[in-house]
Amino acid sequence: MTEQTTPPFLEVRNLAKRFATRQGREPSPWVIRDLSFTVNEGEFLTLIGPSGSGKSTLLNMIAQVDVANSGEIVFGGDVIGVSDSKSLRPGLDRRIGYVTQDDNLLPWRTTLDNVLFPLEVQGRLDEKSRAHAETLIKAVGLSGYEKYYPHELSGGMRKRTSLIRTLVYDPPVILMDEPFAAVDAQTRIQLQEDLLRLWEMGRKTIIFVTHDIAEAIALGDRTLVLTKQPTRIASDHKIPFKRPRNVKDIFALEGFATVYETIRKEIQ
């Protein structure tokens, strides 16, 4: 769809972040510094870094729920400042979806009502969008659980709910912060397959943060390796495997071991 000459879909430029310094203490170290990268439209970008690298902070800043100290984000042709807390626009007018590490489902809403929540608050709840929501619920195998409260669902089901809650309102970019970190290995593979299937349906732009190398390779078109504090981009890998992919068999693919080893060595 996009030509090679068009500017990137989303660009992060020279982002830097340090937390506020307490009075009388030494200035706190930089969490993120000189961080720049680009994402193309419809690209599945995975970011991988050691724990403690400012991965969540980075996504928070792109999602505009946290301020940067300097830097900017270019998105859809607009240059967006991210260093003034007063001008932050969380979710940037619903164009940036964010699947956080915790599912953050509203505990007093059922599965269906949680999925419909964004449509409701955006005033877009109608027959068509409701049908779309139901399709998504079916697609991830949550049919029959529509009337359940979050505490009655398993961890994997809650993840699926929070995933389709973001997909349901169709934001062009979706950020994902280790969404599958807290579930068991079996469920994780299923969730990854669900995610890939949903992505094949719509080909959104996804920025997916993980600390699991296999996950980064299995899901991504491209993988960026982050350094430890202060976080920067260490390297950029194109993942050569054809789609649609089968997550379970990813280890058996020719060339997987080479990519895996290369990335593993780059993560300090």
Partner: peptide, 23 residues
Amino acid sequence: RLINMARILGANETVISREVIWK
């Protein structure tokens, strides 16, 4: 986190008061 989430999903302050804080 729930308030932040609701903001990202496009809820305004009135909706947040009613749907997140009140609940």
